[in-house]
């Protein structure tokens, strides 16, 4: 059974770069959205198991998405993928329930290590 993955980033290029960095042998069904509101809508439809979430987005940003998910009872693994590499940004998203923070430009080995750590890719 494929793992349901949601990729949230306002930049189509950034989404492409991220998807390219995912393990090729990982059996996944990918949905892509370009903003926070669409991310919440996709999440609320149910079934999302892993969410890759950008922070700096127009409208609802990644922090606001995380905050909303937390209020609604976070029920998926959120990996934040951001160019905002301030240590405080990392601390904040981990406190808000993200399982990991991956800096841009994404590194395939780093993502793979996170996925293995949480047992979603073996």
């Amino acid at each position: 059974m494929s793992v349901s993955v949601l990729v949230v980033d306002d930049s189509p290029l950034a989404r492409k770069m991220l998807i390219k960095a995912l393990p090729p042998s990982w059996d996944i069904a990918i949905t892509q959205v370009g903003n926070g509101l669409d991310a919440l809508a996709a999440y609320r439809e149910g079934g999302v198991e892993v969410m890759f979430l950008d922070l700096t987005m127009p409208g609802l940003d990644g922090y606001q998405v995380l905050e909303t998910l937390r209020k609604e009872g976070l029920n998926c693994l959120v990996i934040v993928v951001s160019a905002d590499i301030q240590p405080t940004a990392r601390e904040r998203v981990l406190q808000m329930g993200a399982i990991a923070f991956v800096k841009k430009p994404v590194n395939a080995a780093e993502i793979q290590a996170v996925l293995k750590e949480y047992g979603v890719y073996v």
Partner: peptide, 11 residues
């Protein structure tokens, strides 16, 4: 996207 990464490093 490249500027976004540069901005993140500057921030």
């Amino acid at each position: 996207e490249i500027a976004n990464i540069g901005m993140g490093q500057a921030g």
